[in-house]
Amino acid sequence: MMHDAALTVLFYVLGAGAILCALAVVNARRLLRAALALMFVLLASAGLYLLLGAEFLAGIQVLVYVGGIVILIVFAVMLTSAADLLEDHPSPGRMLAGAVASISFLVFAGGVFARLELAAPAPGARPPADASAIGRRLLDFGSEGYVLPFELLSLLLLAAVIGGIAVARKTPPRDQPFTSGGDAPGEVDIVLPRSQRDEPEEPRA
């Protein structure tokens, strides 16, 4: 009884933490703080997965989302040339576009949630969610198995690699390497051709 009460308290603490951090994501004035808050949202939801007994999913959440996606977002922020991306007074057009986007997402998500028929599990009963059960379902050929989505997933990842390279690499002129930006936006470091460099260039920090 005590144990259940503690778990319930923990659930509400994690849920409230996730919501507060999510509010911080959208309200932060600095992009990097928003990214940090996003990390805590994802960690709190990993905690919620653990409470639900989905240990594998919680591990993946930390490994992929906290360890990967957030880092990618931070890099994307650092790649932008303008630090002042957050406007103090966004133009009415942008506010309208933002409102339309968020309201339509809310309607869409609410619609999906309303149509979803989730069978309520018997109290205490949990589907087997450990890694071996997931592995059996993932590699199963039968109607209960997920081998086709599993293989299609590799194609999705392949598309992500190719798309990312195509987007990130705006092809430079021949024989000219990518450069990091200069100190001012729009200013570019001058990079000597490899033959004229005195020594191998150190990776930039």
Binding site: I71, F75, T80, F178, G181, G182, P185
Partner: peptide, 16 residues
């Protein structure tokens, strides 16, 4: 400063 785009590519490949 604007970071080298190479960081992003490596992060993306790492993520995949």
């Amino acid at each position: 400063i604007q970071f080298n785009v190479g960081y992003y590519l490596f992060a993306l490949l790492f993520l995949v």
